[in-house]
Design a protein around this nucleic acid. Structure first.
Lengths: 179, 179
DNA sequence: CATAATGGCCGAATTAAATTCCGCATCAAC
DNA sequence: GTTGATGCGGAATTTAATTCGGCCATTATG
């Protein structure tokens, strides 16, 4: 019965189109979600209640999934970032493998198209902890091999940006596709 | 022991240690940064002003880098996520390559140890936009090749978690290292 | 050992912001 | 032209953020 209510609620708010003002609001809130509705309204050209109404709608529709504190990995003793590619025998997305999401060191789990099956983003205290996680992965049934890319320096790391590049600089050697 | 100079420097630069309560606060704020200080205090066992004081300190020290709205990529028409490995001739971190950070589609730029030089996380509207970005990369001096991993499904994607796994399950086939 | 001095906390008071309410304008459907 | 729905702004109200002063513990100092 709970799920039914959820479904109804989801269907009740079907894909409301995000307009230009919404995008501006998202742009501001991605940078700093602590500002007041008065300032937010001023930046996007709305009154405080109107800005508030927009943000409420964006949250209800799911466009704003959460408002979260972004913490410095160094402050919590997790200076080591790595991307781990995993090859699996058979279908990779097993419950056993997904169970690694219980470790707070694992930040992302994707299935990818390419020469590997899965891709993990992990952040650990040191190489020992990374080794522990890799050992845990190798003990998972179906995992045949892993390849790790240890990050030396991070030059950019930011949340999803609402802006979209409309025109990419087309190089001359590129043929124009049909679609 | 005279630690006079160290103490002065430490007091000037708030390289303050994050204690257990701070970690709990971070854990709560990573999940939801919109709660009131009254509720935050209740969850970690502090009064509202004390919780406020802690959060102010965490922000001043840089442990909390920002408070940000996490937005749904689908809502802003960016359903395509990809990781792009880049091989470069010579040193990869050139200003020309770093300039791609101006594109909001680029979310992360790292230099990595492994068989590639750099690693990008990019999120685009469609394959055409990804192609546009790749074309832009190939036009960058020094870039010799790229390998892209297009994400089919994302099973986990979350911000930096303050918790740390203290004990990893040690598999029996693993020898005990000296360090 | 005594005694400042500091840092962190709490409760109460004050200030600021979130939220609600209501009237108005716009636009689309009929 | 009428009607209904939607989004907005201004003012009022409620709620939360922020400040303030005092208390207690720990630590430095004589």
């Amino acid at each position: 019965m709970e799920t039914e209510t959820d479904d109804i609620q989801r269907n009740k708010h079907p894909a409301r189109e995000v307009d230009a003002v919404d995008r501006k609001i998202l742009g501001v809130l991605v940078e700093d979600a602590t500002i007041s509705y008065a300032e937010l309204g001023e930046r996007v050209g709305l009154s405080p209640p109107a800005a508030h109404e927009r943000v409420k709608r964006l949250k209800r529709s799911g466009a704003i999934r959460a408002t979260s504190a972004i913490i410095d990995p160094r402050a919590i003793k997790k200076p080591l970032l790595a991307f781990v590619h995993i090859d699996t025998r058979g279908w990779g997305k097993t419950p056993e493998l997904m169970a690694v999401s219980k470790y707070p060191e694992v930040e992302e789990i994707h299935t990818v198209a390419g020469d590997t099956c899965m891709l993990l983003k992990v952040r650990t205290e040191d190489t020992r902890a990374l080794e522990g996680l890799l050992a845990r992965l190798y003990d998972t049934p179906g995992v045949t091999s892993t390849r790790s890319y240890v990050v030396l320096s991070t030059y950019l790391e930011r949340p999803v940006q609402p802006e979209i590049t409309s025109e990419w600089p087309a190089p001359k050697h590129m043929a124009t596709p049909v679609y």
